[in-house]
Amino acid sequence: MTNTENLFKGFVKENPLFVSVLGMCPALAVSTSLENALGMGIGVFFVLVLSNLIISLIMSNEKLAKLVKPVRIPVYIVVIATLVTIVEMVMHAFLTPLYNSLGVFIPLIVVNCIILGRAEAFAASNKPLDSVLDGMGMALGFTGALAIIAVFREFLGAGTITIWGSLSLELTGVFDFIGITPIAMFVQPAGAFLSFGLILAAITAIGNKRTEKLAKGAIK
């Protein structure tokens, strides 16, 4: 696989959230606003890229790999937990409001299946550079998917799109124009399940159309 393929496969083809349906807990919990989604994305990006790098460095060294192999899952978890602790401390120090609104989901990056999944499925058997690119692609794909859900929920639920801090788009005019108020349910827990279900169904429908067309030979 080429470098660009490694980087871009996480965006659409193997998107961790929409295709593999991994890392659902943070996806549902922090998609209440775009700002939270981006904050979570940054955390996951940092942890995933570095954990992929470290694990692939360990596993590509023959002597170390032999030593680590029988206890590799605990080793991965310790590596990931250390990186998550770093993220937690940095966010607490420099991005306190974001730290408070993400709450328990920052330490829970440790048990995010995407990270352990990539470590076991990709980083353990590939070169360091490939693993870093794979980590970047997967993290960006995750962030992008998270951002789509967050924009959908925040727009329907509150009529705003918070990009970062006080920088936000006021779109309540759209609701005034139709003559309704934003549907608060979408920013509540039930809205998370509903939005994710609808978006996933839309993606499946598009995918089905594409396979039908492919079968007919319309697109190559």
């Binding site: 349910m185 039930a190 399940f193 279900g197 996933l200 169904a201 499946t204 089905n208």
Partner: peptide
């Protein structure tokens, strides 16, 4: 269930109703 909703999408929508 409609084809696009089969599997996880419909499960999520049922979960949404439970959550309400």
């Amino acid at each position: 269930v409609p084809k696009a909703f089969q599997g996880i999408p419909i499960a999520l929508i049922v979960a949404a109703i439970l959550a309400i």
